[in-house]
Every structure is written in structure tokens, then in C-alpha cells.
Design a binder for these strands. Structure first.
Length: 429
RNA sequence: GUGGCUGUGGUGAAGUGGUUAACACGACGGAUUGUGGCUCCGUUACUCGAGGGUUCGAUUCCCUCCAGUCACCCCA
């Protein structure tokens, strides 16, 4: 094998594409019940959009972007996440002139130049939701519930929902300073990472996995103690809404989001068995983002769910069955010169929307039966000289083993009748 | 980007410094004359991740690279 798939990318083969379809169907179903509509934005954008939207100092922008110069000399970037792009599309297409809020969802590939490991790929897929134009905590609760219900409907258990408030431009700087004051004299004892975080993003020190750092940060003021009145009320109301909806959550004052644009509500859903990459959903409010990208001050909130991680979780819980799409009929050719006749019948069946297949490798009749069996065909229709002479086919029911001689037309009719009974008929597209 | 572990056929895996690289599954073919799922038989690695050494000789020893994996970082 000379050329393999690029590092951190994966082919999704038929065995698992059915699982993907299952999850994607759930995405559409849940969004339908919560009244979110699909938006599809380009997979690449002007680099500047992400630099401004996500923040120059973030890891994503500073070291994880797939950026290149196109033939026209423009710097473009494969989207590392989709919120900035959705907001861009919202402004560019003037979606704000429609009744608000604008409730959108998306599913698609994202790209981050990271070192791959289980649950972390360079091309991965996210399902995300954005509600733009509502500032109250009600929409926050709706979005969190949507995410929770998504997992619930898929059948996932043992998920943990953490919520927090990361404040706003009024109270966060105050907290930041207080935090730095509290940690300043402990600085030499912190790990290397935390020392570099001290200036850039001191709140990150609070969820450092290093035990020493963890110990040192005990007793330090929490964000939730330093919120301004508006942010504090927002959080209180959100909590009571979640409780009213019967949602189980845990307040985690040390939950931080990695992207610059978050304000107020931040939340994360984890599936602990996934190990280091256990976050399956991350989201929060971004009241400053739209202005940053050039719109009027407009509130927004959203989340992103990593679909590869969802699939891993489903696998871990044994929810994904080994499935294969079956066919209704396999047409077997007993004499080579009957192939045109068989092919004609195959075509007619397909026009009648009956899932069927036949052999193109000139296999023996026995081998064709084996093939039919593997494809889980309900019936095998044998066409040979004997059948052709009578203008009929030999239809074998692969479950009962019974075999009948009938015309192709009668056979098609019989199947169509059964399909209606069994609900086997494929849905119309 | 940093560190640990790993890399044998389509898959799961044995194995050794020196003729023909176990075994299992799968795939393909066959078990008398046109019929599957069970059973039986046969076939299926002329680069043992790639490149370079050491050696009379390396799949087995060394180096580099690549890939996977786990952890860190970060995040979905």
C-alpha cells in the first residue's frame, strides 16, 4: 500500500456507515422536535473569521488549524469548529431580519491538526446547534435539554452534565485578577503548564490534572462567587429551569471552555468510560461573538457534539448491532444464455422498488445461492432453460425452503403485496 | 508538540539469526448430473510497516522514518 489515508482521518465503511446513519437520523429527529433547522456552511472559510471568532490565543487558532493559501493568494482555513461560520452566515444572509431567535443545527466534518488518539481525529464530525438572538436563560435550558435528550434517545446512560458560568466582560476580568492574586505566591510550586497558564488563562489552572496544582488551588475563589448581578441571576434562573425540567446536572465552578467567545453559561457532557477524551458535548453562551464578527450586539448560545465519540460510547454500551442491509430477491442464473432474461427481470423488480441483486461473476448456481444467503435474500429466483421455456421463474423461499414455479409478473405482485403487510417497502424519497 | 507501548496474509494471531513463515476465521472452489445456511476437502503471506545498517545470512539484532495505540497538552 503506497498511499494511505492521511494521518488522523478514517474511512467510514459500510459496516459502520449504517451506525452513522442511525445517529444522523437521531440528530434530525431531535432537532425537529425542538424546532431547529439545518444550515450547511462551507467546510472552509477565510482564516480571519476563525482568528477573530475563536481568538488568537486559543490552542485551536494558534496551533491546530489547517490553513493554506489558495491560488488567488487568499488565506483560507478548513473549519476547526462551526459556530463562527454559522454566525458569519447569520449576518451575511441577514437572518436577523426574520423572527428571532434563529434556531439552527448542523452536522459535518471539522478539521484540527492535533495528534490523533482514540476519540480524537484530524477530521472528525460534529453535530451542533446554535440559537441566536435570545439572551434569557430559557434558551440556555432548551439547548442543554436538547443535548441531553439526544443522548437519552440514543440509549446512552451514565452521562454527566456539568454547568458553570464563566461570567461576562464586566465580571470576568475582576475574577481573573482576584484569581491571579490568590495564586501568585504559589506560582513557583505550580507545574510548567500552569505557570504558562497564569498569564494567558489562569482559570485553566483550576482544572489541571496535576495533583500538586489541584491541592494548591484549593480554597481559591471560584468564578461563581464573583459573578456580577446579571450573570448570577442568569445562572440561578437556568438552574431552576433545569430542575423544573427534571434534568440532573452538577454545578462545576471550575469548568472552563477553551474558546474565547464564551460568556455566562458554559456546559459540558461527559461519558467517563471514554478515558481521556470523555467530553462528548461542549457548549455555552457567546454574547460577544456576533459583535466581534461585525454584527450588532446579539446574544447567542450553542453546543457541539463529537459524533465519533458518540459512536464510541454507543459501542461501549453495546447499543450498536452488527447490521447489514438485506435484499428481498436474489436472481440466480442457471444457464448463461438466460442472463439477458434475468437481467430484464432484475430491472423490472428494481423499477418496482424491490431491493434485489444478481451475480455478475459467472458463478455456479450453488455459489449464487451462497451469495444470496450472505445477502440475506428473502427469495431466490432461479432462471434456467427449463424456466425460460415456460416463461416462468423458480422462486425459492429461503426461510421455508419451499419452491414454486410462477411468472415474473406474479412474483413481483406477490412481493409487493407482502411488502405492504410487513412494512418492508422502502420509504419514498 | 512531548513521552510510553506496538507494527507478521482480508481479519485475529503463533514463530525463528540460516531450506517450503504454525493455527483459527474469512474469501474462493469442490463433495456425480441446475439450489443456500451444517459437515468434510482443497486453494489462499514469491515486500513478515518502509528505508538504511550489523552479519557469510535477518521477518527475527541496531538506527531512522511512517502508522496505530495510550497518556500529557487540548478538546468534540
Amino acid at each position: 500500500m503506497e498511499i494511505g489515508a492521511p494521518r488522523g482521518t478514517k474511512d467510514i465503511l459500510p459496516a459502520s456507515s449504517l451506525h452513522w446513519q442511525y445517529v444522523e437520523a437521531m440528530v434530525r429527529a431531535i432537532c425537529r422536535t425542538y424546532a431547529y433547522q439545518e444550515i450547511r456552511t462551507p467546510v472552509f472559510e477565510h482564516t480571519e473569521l476563525f482568528q477573530r471568532g475563536i481568538g488568537e490565543t486559543t490552542d485551536i487558532v494558534s496551533k491546530e488549524m489547517y490553513t493554506f493559501t489558495d491560488r488567488g493568494g487568499r488565506s483560507v482555513t478548513l473549519r476547526p469548529e462551526n459556530t463562527a461560520a454559522v454566525v458569519r452566515a447569520y449576518l451575511e444572509n441577514k437572518l436577523y431580519s426574520a423572527p428571532q431567535p434563529t434556531k439552527l443545527f448542523y452536522v459535518g466534518p471539522m478539521f484540527r491538526y492535533d495528534r490523533p488518539q482514540a476519540g480524537r481525529l484530524r477530521q472528525f464530525h460534529q453535530f451542533g446547534v446554535e440559537a441566536i438572538g435570545a439572551k434569557g436563560p430559557g434558551i440556555d435550558a432548551e439547548i442543554i435539554l436538547l443535548a441531553q435528550q439526544f443522548f437519552h434517545r440514543l440509549g446512552l446512560k451514565d452521562l454527566k452534565l456539568y454547568i458553570n458560568s464563566v461570567g461576562c466582560p464586566k465580571c470576568r476580568p475582576v475574577y481573573r485578577t482576584r484569581l491571579q492574586q490568590a495564586l501568585r505566591d504559589k506560582l513557583p510550586e505550580l507545574c510548567d503548564d500552569c505557570r504558562s497558564r497564569f498569564d494567558r488563562n489562569p482559570m485553566r489552572i483550576l482544572d489541571c490534572k496535576n495533583e500538586k496544582c489541584n491541592e494548591l488551588s484549593q480554597g481559591v475563589p471560584e468564578m461563581t462567587d464573583c459573578l456580577c448581578e446579571e450573570c448570577a441571576t442568569h445562572l440561578t434562573e437556568l438552574k431552576s429551569l433545569l430542575t423544573a425540567a427534571g434534568a440532573k446536572y452538577e454545578l462545576n465552578p471550575r469548568l472552563v471552555r477553551g474558546l474565547d467567545y464564551y460568556t455566562k453559561t458554559a456546559f459540558e457532557i461527559q461519558y467517563p468510560p471514554l478515558g481521556a477524551q470523555s467530553a462528548v458535548c461542549g457548549g455555552g453562551r457567546y454574547d460577544g461573538l456576533i459583535e466581534e464578527i461585525g454584527g450588532d450586539q446579539t446574544p447567542g448560545i450553542g453546543f457541539a457534539i463529537g459524533l465519533e465519540r458518540v459512536l464510541l460510547a454507543l459501542e461501549k454500551q453495546g447499543i450498536l448491532a452488527d447490521t447489514k442491509e438485506s435484499i428481498i430477491v436474489y436472481i440466480a442464473v442457471a444457464d448463461k444464455n438466460c442472463q439477458p432474461l434475468a437481467f430484464n427481470m432484475l430491472t423490472k423488480m428494481r423499477q418496482a422498488k424491490i431491493a434485489c441483486d444478481m451475480d455478475y461473476l459467472d458463478r455456479s448456481l450453488k455459489a449464487q445461492f451462497k451469495q444470496a444467503n450472505r445477502n440475506m435474500a428473502r427469495f431466490v429466483a432461479v432462471i434456467g432453460e427449463a424456466e425460460a421455456a415456460q416463461n416462468k421463474v423458480a422462486v425459492k423461499d429461503m426461510q421455508s425452503g419451499e419452491q414454486f414455479l410462477m411468472t415474473a409478473e406474479d412474483f413481483i405482485e406477490k412481493i409487493l403485496a407482502e411488502m405492504e403487510d410487513d412494512g418492508l417497502r422502502w420509504t419514498q424519497c
